[in-house]
Design a protein around this nucleic acid. Structure first.
Lengths: 128, 128
DNA sequence: AAAATTCGTCGACAACTGTAGTCAAAGAGT
DNA sequence: ACTCTTTGACTACAGTTGTCGACGAATTTT
């Protein structure tokens, strides 16, 4: 099993872009991040370095610059972070957590139906 | 509206105990925390101080020692933390998050039924 | 009363975060 | 060739977090 890397808020933002499309240059990333975050290029570079140092992102030389690619999977990262969150905030209780999200977010009927379907499928699977 | 305080991992642990029962002395808290965390009393004291500094916990003199009580509500704290988590990890998409938890945790039929009931209720409420 | 225990306050220190400036090397433009 | 720009490497610096130890005042124990 993987060592479950943890990422900071800022690192998540960068990773999300790399999961959407990769490889990308730091410049491309800067362009996408600047509007929402106002981060200077130095900031983005620092974050990328840290991600590379952590082994979450890989580089590939492309002339003068690097091309960055995420090597950790989004699903796995979400899993780890969700687990930690669940533990910390809801003491591991999935039901309270689900209740919380069902109640505090206005789900559309569409979404509710999706979730109901998921639940049904899960119930069947666990049966045998 | 409240200012939505953020708490660290360690602070959550302390808060959870105070939500369960309050007021409590630092000693009582130490006793409950020691088994799971191996924290020395100094550590617990530091965490309590920080929580008081943040305005999340109040003290009440009780002879030589203090009695600590949480002043932030558990529900409100969970709400804030859940919001931040949802944003950071699932980009605000409640459905993907729900799907994630339904799929990755072995819910008992009991729990599934509870959640289904919640969904049904929500659906009805939103209707009108 | 002297010694041992208990408490809260301070100070400490390394790792992690957010945010960015500086600088030298490499390339691009003229 | 010479200057302007881009890029990664390195440095910086304050704030947060995890973890405590030291210390002096207050209490309890002996």
């Amino acid at each position: 099993m993987k060592n479950a890397l943890r990422f900071s808020d800022a690192e998540w933002r960068v990773l999300k872009l790399l999961w959407q499309r990769a490889p990308q240059t730091s410049q491309e990333l800067c362009e996408q991040l600047e509007p929402e975050t106002n981060w200077k290029p130095s900031t983005v570079k620092t974050l990328l370095s840290r991600l590379v140092a952590k082994g979450a992102v890989q580089t590939e030389a492309h002339g003068r610059a690097y091309l960055f690619t995420a090597v950790v999977s989004e699903a796995e990262s979400q899993r780890a972070e969700a687990q930690s969150f669940l533990e910390r905030v809801f003491s591991g209780g999935v039901s309270p957590l689900m209740a919380h999200f069902v109640e505090s977010h206005d789900l559309t009927d569409e979404q509710i139906r999706e979730i109901e379907a998921l639940l049904k499928k899960t119930k069947r699977k666990d049966r045998k």
